[in-house]
Design a protein around this nucleic acid. Structure first.
Lengths: 160, 160
DNA sequence: GCTACTCCTTAGCCTCGCTAATTACCAACG
DNA sequence: CGTTGGTAATTAGCGAGGCTAAGGAGTAGC
């Protein structure tokens, strides 16, 4: 709205460089842009013979929380069950997880990490973080502390 | 590596809750997880009759920087030219951008925002940020300041 | 034992990355 | 002047990973 500007050059109007004046109003916008941009960059760090992002996320979840059913994984990853079924199938095909019947409830399935999967998650985590770690090394201590605090805050913020 | 743990419950080994002891080594890991998780959550905020994430990002870029060639857009978005061609084609089909020949170089194409596109980018930006804004409102001033600083830092960090 | 519910899966659609190959155009050189 | 090489954009086709809708297996309750 307000939008029908016919001129194709509203440069500098939208967000410029860093939050200009309106502290709260623009924080959400600024943060959103910064987060999505960084996340895209992080995501592009994976190589071909590698876990995909969704796969890695599931593997890491299993690594931390132990065996889970597909439904639980879907909920944890904010994804629909069919999507998780496919991701789990890919992980199983690669030998990183194993699917077993649930001991009590025949409808359910338990997904658990194999030894290879546990190794993969640790190796991949280290490698994936390398790019970011190298960038963070250029910052000073205060800046790193700020980002550490931000990581904690974001964790709380997304916690629904 | 270390990995052949036969026990399926290494819970608490991987990263627990928030950076445990190693301040620099884990910052990259913690931050990566927090960023990707938040970004996924933000991305899930879009509705159907809406711009996709990639489309919105291109529109916003045009809104800020003015007309660009597909190649420039691809580089800015860290995407290969064919991917950008498709995104631009979708945007053109929806009437949000317009493609015109480059005045000097017949090989190139200039992509420019239409009035509808400019309106869409502003409306969408406001709506997409609403979820995050609501979450941020629950924080205190210090916490918001931390996130604002983090957004600026991330912007610098990804700047290649 | 039939019905209803729950969980997982299959089928089929879409977006959006990618690589490889094609087309259109510019520039430079014989 | 024509060919030859480089560059920009596109088309073709693949894979991952979202989604909804619909199907199959198992549990639970009447």
């Amino acid at each position: 709205m307000t939008g029908a500007t016919p001129t194709p050059f509203p440069a500098g109007a939208a967000h410029g460089d860093a939050a200009p004046d309106d502290p709260t109003g623009d924080l959400a916008v600024e943060l959103r842009i910064a987060l999505l941009r960084t996340a895209r960059r992080l995501r592009s760090q994976k190589s071909v013979d590698d876990l995909t992002d969704a796969q890695f996320s599931v593997l890491a979840h299993l690594h931390v929380h132990g065996p889970r059913t597909p439904g639980e994984l879907a909920e944890a990853e904010h994804v629909r069950p069919p999507s998780m079924t496919r991701t789990v199938a890919a992980l199983e095909g690669a030998g990183w997880v194993q699917r077993t019947g649930h001991p009590d409830d025949g409808r359910q399935v338990l997904v658990l990490l194999t030894a290879a999967g546990a190794a993969a998650v640790e190796e991949t985590r280290a490698r994936r973080s390398a790019w970011l770690r190298e960038r963070l090394a250029r910052l000073d201590d205060d800046e790193r502390a700020t980002l550490a605090a931000a990581a904690r805050l974001l964790r709380a913020v997304v916690q629904e």
